[in-house]
């Protein structure tokens, strides 16, 4: 049964820009109330960011339980430090950084995952049409899930969250070329995993093209 939405849940929708975007502006008054320990304000902030924070953690970690724990820890850390927030940078950027750091810390703790490497054979991005443009959501989800966690994280941070390679290198404690190679390899693997479906998808999208074959 659907739970009735709380006041904070209803208020959260007022700040949403898009379902997946972290770029949500929070009123200063709400932050000030949260800083004073107002639980209602804290819940409103949480509700505003719970989906983008969880989605980011889930994409990076690839595991629902880990993502949930990451959001939990990130929110607690945020609330611990909210008194230090000076408003020089957007609040959402600050929170997003906390979530990313928590997720990366979790990945580091699982060292076997961090050091999982992709083979070099199909790492280079190919030319031709972009297979992800034709893949459906489930195919792309599956392909993404098959990438090593760190590669997937770097790919997501670079392409979706639009961090630069320098920023990713700093956050992961690696070099810029490491970040670049992870992105290139991730793209190469996605392409390889999705390409076999491309002709089928093309047929579905444009059956007239196959009709010309004698």
């Amino acid at each position: 049964m659907q739970q009735p939405a709380t006041k904070a849940q209803a208020s959260a929708s007022e700040y949403s820009v898009s379902a997946i975007s972290f770029q949500i502006d929070i009123p200063d008054t709400l932050i000030a109330r949260a800083r004073r320990g107002d639980v209602g304000a804290i819940e409103q902030i949480y509700r505003a960011f719970e989906r983008p924070a969880y989605t980011l953690a889930l994409r990076m970690l690839g595991n629902a339980d880990s993502a949930r724990e990451t959001v939990h820890d990130a929110m607690l850390r945020l609330l611990e430090r909210i008194g230090q927030f000076r408003g020089e940078a957007p609040f959402w950027g600050w929170l997003r950084q906390i979530v990313v750091n928590e997720a990366l810390m979790r990945l580091r703790r699982e060292r076997a995952v961090v050091f999982e490497e992709l083979p070099d054979d199909d790492a280079t991005p190919g030319g031709g049409p972009s297979p992800w443009a034709f893949a459906d959501t489930a195919q792309l989800e599956r392909a993404l899930a098959r990438l090593p966690a760190l590669t997937r994280s770097v790919l997501w941070l670079y392409h979706v969250e639009e961090y630069t390679h320098q920023e990713i290198a700093r956050m992961t404690g690696n070099s810029v070329s490491f970040s670049k190679s992870q992105v290139a390899r991730g793209i190469g693997h996605l392409r390889a995993m999705l390409e076999p479906h491309t002709p089928q998808r093309q047929q579905e999208v444009a059956p007239c093209l196959s009709a010309t074959t004698p």
Partner: peptide, 10 residues
Amino acid sequence: ALRALPDAGP
């Protein structure tokens, strides 16, 4: 393509 993937909540 990645952004078009559905978001999720805990």
